[in-house]
């Protein structure tokens, strides 16, 4: 300890050793009443530790709560972003138009008989789309 004090002389160091020894002796030679009270105090502290150990462990510590909120918000943002159709607003409008046409066809009185009028045409149209050769 003395080495950490640059201005300390050998005489200071001897004084320091003497005071330290005396103080430690006085701490070791406490009377029975004080020792007993200290033991009781220690047991009270250990009982507090026991209470703490008995509490549920799954509680979110207060310090982690903001981080948890940020993480949850990030997950929701990513989920919303990935759920959007690729192509942006124009693609959304196009999809909406197609859906409107489908609804129109479904709402009309024309049933599956429509396709029965000219089956060759539809067969040709299907072949043309898949083959791409015209």
């Amino acid at each position: 300890m003395s080495n950490e004090q640059p201005n300390m002389t050998e005489s200071d160091a001897a004084f320091e050793r003497r005071t330290r020894a005396l103080l430690r002796d006085s701490a070791d030679a406490l009377d029975g009443r004080v020792r007993s009270r200290l033991t009781a105090a220690r047991h009270a502290a250990l009982a507090e530790l026991e209470k703490r150990a008995a509490r549920p462990r799954f509680r979110v510590p207060g310090a982690w709560l903001p981080a948890g909120v940020v993480a949850a918000a990030a997950v929701v943002a990513i989920a919303v972003w990935t759920a959007q159709p690729v192509g942006g607003p124009a693609a959304v409008v196009a999809d909406a138009t197609l859906m409107g046409e489908d609804a129109e066809i479904l709402a009309s009185n024309e049933g599956p008989d429509l396709y029965a009028d000219d089956p060759d045409f539809y067969e040709w149209a299907g072949t043309d789309q898949s083959g791409g050769t015209g």
């Binding site: 701490a27 406490l30 200290l38 105090a41 250990l46 026991e50």
Partner: peptide
């Protein structure tokens, strides 16, 4: 596992307090 940890912590704290209590009192 939690029981072992709790016991270890209690023993460790007991040891620490026993070591420090008299000087702290002084």
């Amino acid at each position: 596992c939690a029981r072992e940890t709790d016991l270890d912590a209690a023993r460790e704290l007991e040891r620490f307090l026993k070591d420090v209590e008299r000087r702290a009192f002084r």
